[in-house]
Design a protein around this nucleic acid. Structure first.
Lengths: 190, 190
DNA sequence: CTCCTTTATCAACGCTTGTTGACTTTTACG
DNA sequence: CGTAAAAGTCAACAAGCGTTGATAAAGGAG
């Protein structure tokens, strides 16, 4: 076969598997999302999943691959940094379900947990450090607690009225919290 | 058998099963915590689990049974209510692992998710309503996001430095957030 | 057309799971 | 003692899982 640009026929199948996998993992978690169900959703044979992704763990790794794409906060005044960050995270969260895959599986799967840690401790904290924020690790961690807690209640537990809160109201409520975690002096030092 | 006070021999076995179940559910989640493993931990036969609890779902229901025991906030000044609440929750959370059972399983098990909702929407919100707080449901929900997010990062994901933060520092950081969610006017109304 | 690589299908494997029923041991009362 | 209920043991089941290898169809290349 001589294709123009690596646009093999199998790429479609690969993509279909990945899409089905993401949906199943996001909805059912790692254990309950079976290879057979994913294959059925993608309308292919379970053996094809093994052919293209090796095994379940690798398929999951591929399905949970993503980039947070943190926004550039350098031009934002400190007192509104929280709101900008929250709005970005909420929109990012609703965009695709990769983050929901990660959150749902991180609770029982160590691979997912490690990746989740990398996202916050490995991207947020270094960004704060570069911005010369004191105690970057603690602040990044606190922001993670609020951000992940909101996502948990909103997308996983479907906790009313959080699940149906408008983005604007969510930003208005959570923004100042994030701003405080980012800018306030350590209250236990006072 | 004529026992003095319903103190059957089997009660010990029942308790041993329940203790082992709680530990396994808290550590592994619903799916990965197997009846066989629980029985092995309790040093009994898997069939005994069925004898005393019927099936896995009922065993889980028994293991996840608990009471939040919310503190009385009526005598606490409003501006410190958050700190009192956070301290109570953290201590309660470290006391026994029932809450961790619930959090870990709520992500994939609908029974656990429903029970989790009852704890916050069914106990916190009504308490606020009685205290004549406006928008009790939203405020209870917001507090749930911060509290559950903290528990998730600290106990489930083992997210440093949150996991090793002292209770005092956690209270100092989180308290004001909870207080604001409880007392601040709705920022999206401004 | 033939040939060979890519893609897909099928049936089966070994294993683990929750769950069951028949059986044996223990225990307390007459 | 004897006996009947309670407590515990054992082997097995049906079903579902991830995974594999043999085999068949598809589709350009020569």
């Amino acid at each position: 076969m001589l294709y123009g640009m690596a646009e093999k026929k199998s790429d479609r199948t690969r993509a279909a598997i990945l899409a089905a996998a993401r949906e199943r993992f996001a909805q059912d978690g790692y254990e309950r999302a079976t290879i057979r169900a994913i294959a059925a959703d993608a309308a292919i044979d379970p053996a094809m999943v093994m052919r293209y992704y090796g095994n379940k763990e690798k398929l999951f790794a591929a399905a949970a691959e993503f980039d947070v794409r943190l926004p550039d906060l350098s031009g934002v005044p400190r007192e509104h940094a929280g709101e900008v960050l929250v709005r970005h995270l909420v929109e990012r969260w609703e965009e695709d379900d990769t983050l929901r895959v990660l959150l749902r599986t991180a609770v029982t799967n160590e691979t997912a947990a490690e990746r989740m840690r990398q996202v916050f401790a490995g991207q947020l904290a270094p960004a704060f450090e570069r911005a010369a924020v004191d105690q970057p690790a603690v602040r990044a961690g606190l922001i993670a607690t609020q951000a992940l807690g909101f996502a948990l209640c909103r997308y996983i537990l479907a906790f009313e009225p959080i699940a149906t809160l408008s983005t604007d109201r969510a930003v208005a409520w959570l923004g100042p919290t994030i701003t405080r975690y980012l800018t306030a002096p350590d209250p236990s030092q006072a």
